[in-house]
Amino acid sequence: MRLLEIKFKNDKKCYIYYRLLITSTMNIETRKYKIIQKVMQSSDEKLSKIEEMLKEESELEAKLEKAMQQVREGKVKPHSEVRKRYEKWL
C-alpha cells in the first residue's frame, strides 16, 4: 500500500491509501500483449466476467474522481463532526 497526500490552499491535507500494481520485470508492451493473449483465449463466461470487472473499475474511478473533486472544493466534514452528529445511532 502507498500513501498519497493531497494538500489544499487552506493548508488542509487529505490522505488516500492505494495499491500500486506493477510487474517490474516486464515492460508495458509485454504486459499488454500478455493480457491480450489471455483475453483472446478466454471463454465467453470469462470474457463476461472481465467486461463486468472493467465496468466496475470504470465506475469506481468516476466515483473516486467525484469524491476527490469534493475534497478539493472543501465539501467534506471532519470525521469528528460526522461522528458527533450521528452519535446516537452508533
Rank of each mutant, 00 (worst) to 15 (best):
Y15Q: 14
Q37R: 10
Y33L: 09
M1P: 02
K63F: 03
T25S: 12
W89A: 10
R31G: 07
H79Y: 13
A62D: 13
V71L: 15
K13A: 03
T25N: 12
K32A: 08
K75D: 07
M53F: 12
E45G: 05
K12N: 09
H79L: 12
W89M: 09
M26S: 10
K34R: 11
N27A: 05
E29M: 12
L3R: 15
E65C: 07
K32I: 06
G74N: 03
M26N: 10
Y33Q: 15
L90D: 11
S48L: 06
I16R: 02
K75P: 00
K88Q: 13
S43A: 01
I16Q: 01
K34V: 01
A62F: 09
K49M: 05
E59W: 04
E87S: 11
K84Q: 12
A67R: 03
L21R: 15
E81R: 02
P78C: 07
E65S: 13
L21Y: 14
Y15M: 06
I22G: 04
Y18I: 00
E57R: 11
Q41S: 08
L4K: 15
Y86P: 01
M26L: 12
M1E: 13
S43Y: 01
Y33T: 06
D11F: 04
E5R: 13
L60H: 13
S24D: 14
L4D: 10
L3V: 09
